[in-house]
Design a protein around this nucleic acid. Structure first.
Length: 661
DNA sequence: ATAGGGATATAC
DNA sequence: GTATATCCCTAT
């Protein structure tokens, strides 16, 4: 293992260089050829063993011994090709090459099927090919997206943690509490320093910050009457902050509010907070002059401490449900949600510190959110938020999309929550999700109680519910083919298949792939056997996989290119190689390669590698030559011809690795 | 990470 | 209502 890993780099480098070398010097090629040869022959580890032991190849040694590692060490397809080419050239030049590689004969045979599947060959090649580009992107869209989007969850902890944006602000908040003594508020004289400061920053004291001012004010007086002080303060603030509005405001709050054209959201929080909502007025003694105002300076007077009515709380809850916790601004922006001049900050505060009346609601909300978070981990919070808000916005795919949006042309749904790509997907996945409510299970996650509560609130369905289950997306023919290919290469390693960039199955979850394979090729899945061509064909047309297994075709005819291909891949191993079916599929997982393919019918298997590759179509004749070489040089030309014939019948379409290269 | 099995959605 | 595919959760 270790050696293998270590060696590999060398091998690669060698390979790269080889072509040159080989061209130049005949003798040199040997190492290469030998290497290639050694690699593939997993069929008979023992046989290879002789080779392995020595110099030649690291890779070879690997094969026999360690499957897993072997992969890494094994030559990649590219390498093979290169080697093949080289060799080919050499061959043409002289026959010696043949002599040199003893093992070759073996190679061809196993190369075909198995190679793809388990062998280092296949695996290695995958790795190489894949690794570069695909880098094992951990698809975890969920986690990422979730974390990103999810703003709320953890309600209290997070909230508490959040540091106040500003120092001053914090201070102001502190001031919210009614001063123990009214007198504490500093009177603000028009001419006072403070006012000056406010109005004219440039003034002497300009350097002072609001917080300082506030504290200073507070410190300052006791003597003055609260009202007065408020008034003054307000005026001062107003002057400094809202010059234009002075006229209007003087009279009363309402006028201010009603007249104020400015979008609430746009107004600085501090300012808005300062303003007194209509509802709140009732609660608070209306100061006459005071129109609330100032933001920074004055913190919020008692006026601002407006209690949250039940209605508001409910509204908040709804907003949270719709938009998600933490999206206070978004909630405020909801047209249907009216708050009494609450600011985003207010919403946040309320959420974290609900009054008694609303506690229950909050509790419910919290529960709901938590559940949603827990349950819908795969979903992005953002999605949750938006799903309901925008009626137009229908479906979205939670996770799969996030991971690899670009790859699958077929999945438009992937789109972000924002975008509305409801039906972009032919599969209609998006649509299906929305439907969920009807089925009745749509909101399994929520407890009945929660639901009831929500219902009472007028919230028919929490967005959460919708997102819960991904929309159903039937597997397409292309996907099935890719799956088969993936199976051929990776065996039961669904994750690898899923991550294999060549297969473009990233939009599916590994489990999805497994499920599909399980349903489509039950026999193969159970027995770890091969997938009969028939299965594929079936699947293309309709599925008969279930039965399909029963009718295996000895030689599936394959039409490679057409969508409906028959894959003859049966992972079977050559008879010699492996014990067959006995191996439970599990083996696949652990050592997918061998068990799977090996087990399958020998009849199918035998295809020579060359044929196989060539067959795969992608390779041009020349390429085939190369391959043949790579696969089994020795047999070389002669073999190739022989090989081709049989193979063609059996199609291993799946194995098209041209992509790999 | 994969296998097994349950739940749900969809098609017939 | 049944059959099936797909999705999902849980155990290992």
């Amino acid at each position: 293992m270790e050696s293998a890993s270590a060696l590999r780099p060398l091998d690669e480098s060698l390979l790269r260089e080889l072509p040159q070398l080989s061209l130049r010097i005949a003798p040199l090629r040997e190492p290469v050829s030998s290497r290639t040869l050694s690699v593939p022959s997993p069929l008979e580890p023992n046989a290879s063993g002789t080779r392995d032991s020595n110099n030649i190849s690291n890779s070879s040694s690997n094969n026999g011994k360690i499957p897993a590692n072997a992969k890494a060490s094994l030559p990649t397809v590219t390498e093979f090709l290169n080697a093949a080419r080289i060799r080919k050239t050499e061959l043409s030049a002289d026959s010696q090459s043949n002599v040199e590689c003893p093992p070759r004969p073996i190679l061809p045979a196993f190369v075909n099927l198995r190679a793809l599947e388990k062998f280092p060959f296949s695996s290695s090649f995958d790795d190489d090919a894949l690794q570069g580009p695909r880098k094992r992107r951990r698809r975890d869209p969920q986690a990422d997206s979730f974390s990103e989007h999810l703003q709320l969850p953890i309600p209290q902890a997070q909230k508490e943690q959040r540091p106040p944006p500003f120092g001053p602000f914090a201070i102001l908040n502190g001031l919210n509490e009614p001063p123990p003594n009214a007198a504490l508020l500093p009177p603000i004289e028009a001419g006072s320093n403070i006012s000056q400061l406010l109005t004219k920053p440039s003034g002497g004291d300009a350097g002072v910050d609001p917080g300082t001012l506030v504290s200073a004010q507070a410190a300052v007086l006791d003597s003055q009457p609260a009202e007065r002080r408020d008034t003054r303060l307000e005026e001062t603030l107003r002057t400094s902050l809202n010059v234009d509005e002075d006229d209007d405001r003087n009279d009363n709050d309402e006028s201010v509010e009603s007249t104020n054209p400015v979008d609430p959201d746009e107004i600085p929080l501090a300012v808005r907070e300062a303003e007194i909502p209509k509802s709140s007025k009732a609660l608070l003694p209306p100061p006459r002059e005071d129109v609330p105002l100032s933001p920074k300076t004055r913190g919020r007077s008692r006026k601002n401490l407006r209690k949250w009515s039940e209605e508001e709380t409910t509204t908040l809850l709804r907003g949270v449900i719709k938009c998600g916790i933490g999206n206070w601004t978004a909630i405020l922006a909801q047209p249907e949600l009216e708050f009494n001049q609450r600011t985003a900050s207010n919403l946040k505060d309320s959420a974290s510190d609900p009054n008694e009346a609303a506690k229950q609601l909050h509790a419910t909300l919290a529960n709901t959110l938590l559940k949603a978070k827990a349950e819908g981990s795969d979903e992005t919070p953002g999605k949750i938020q938006l799903s309901h808000i925008m009626p137009s916005n229908q479906g979205f795919e939670p996770k799969s999309g996030a991971g690899s949006p670009t790859r699958n042309p077929q999945n438009p749904s992937i789109s972000s929550t924002v975008s509305s790509t409801p039906d972009a997907n032919p599969g209609s996945s998006s649509i299906t999700q929305l439907q969920s409510p009807s089925s009745g299970n749509s909101t399994p996650a929520l407890s009945s109680k929660s639901r009831t509560t929500l219902a009472s609130l007028g919230i028919s369905e929490p967005h959460v519910a919708k997102t819960k289950r991904r929309s159903r997306r039937p597997f397409t023919t292309a996907e099935d083919e890719a799956l088969l290919k993936g199976y051929a290469v990776h065996g039961f390693q669904w994750t690898l298949i899923q991550q294999d960039s060549r297969l473009n199955l990233s939009h599916r979850k590994a489990t999805d792939l497994r499920d599909r394979f399980r349903t489509k090729f039950p026999h193969a899945y159970r027995d770890g056997g091969s997938v009969s061509g028939k299965a594929l064909t079936n699947q293309n047309q309709s599925q008969e996989l279930t039965t399909g297994a029963s009718t295996p075709r000895p030689h599936p005819v394959n039409t490679e290119q057409s969508p409906s291909k028959t894959y003859a891949m049966t992972p079977t191993s050559t008879p010699a190689t492996t014990p067959r079916n006995s191996v439970p599929r599990r083996s696949h997982a652990a050592t997918p390669s061998q068990s799977n393919f090996a087990q399958i019918d020998p009849a199918l298997l035998p295809p020579p590698p060359q044929g196989f590759l060539e067959h795969s179509m992608y390779l041009p004749p020349a390429a085939s030559g190369v391959l043949s070489f790579s696969l089994d040089d020795g047999s070389g030309a002669g073999a190739s011809s022989a090989v081709e014939t049989p193979w063609e019948d059996n199609t291993l379409a799946p194995m098209i690795w041209d992509e790999l290269t």
